[in-house]
Nucleic acid binder design. Structure first.
Lengths: 90, 90
DNA sequence: ATTATACGCAACCATGAGGTTGCATGTCAA
DNA sequence: TTGACATGCAACCTCATGGTTGCGTATAAT
């Protein structure tokens, strides 16, 4: 796991909202997730921007994605967060 | 506490090293801290750049600083990290 | 008193990150 | 098969960030 990628992925507020949504509903389509962010969190964002965020999250290991037919299904993974957050706590 | 500032502060590798050092030795001068990063972590960085990082950490509440004579003493504070890291863990 | 030290401040620079636009591709439904 | 739909890809733009340089200031040491 690349620690740096995890911290950088968490640095963006939109990506944190995406993780919130995925944490609540483990599997979601890129399209679903985009719709939910716009509707429930009043975020103004395009699908393409969302796709980029997914890429960042995926490279950090915070998310895995799989192609099912014409959909890209995204799954949340909290493991990297567990590994990273106790660094300065005793 | 501004959550966003905490995540953003943790996104930089140099700042994370600074926290490592401060975690190990609670009180340090800007000068000491700079020297330690250069010596022990082989980081090439100027004092001014370090001062900027301290500002970022301080605004995030991860560090507090105090002027003692001609020194600026920096103190680590892990409280914001505790408050922020359990967001996606159940 | 004078010099060295530790630091603050401000301007400047280069790079990367988040975002948009436009178009191509693959899949599903009618 | 044809059209709608969900997504991929690439170029481009803007702005924040990390960094440097140069200079000024207050404290400490000789």
């Amino acid at each position: 796991m690349q620690e740096d990628l995890v911290y950088k992925a968490l640095a963006d507020p939109t990506r944190r909202l995406m993780l919130d949504e995925l944490c609540e509903r483990k599997e979601q389509t890129l399209y679903e997730l985009t719709a939910r962010l716009i509707m429930r969190h009043e975020v103004a964002i395009s699908r393409q921007a969302m796709a980029k965020h997914i890429d960042v999250l995926e490279k950090a290991g915070l998310v895995s994605s799989e192609k099912r037919g014409k959909f890209r299904v995204i799954v949340f993974n909290d493991e990297p967060i567990r590994g990273v957050m106790n660094r300065w706590l005793k």
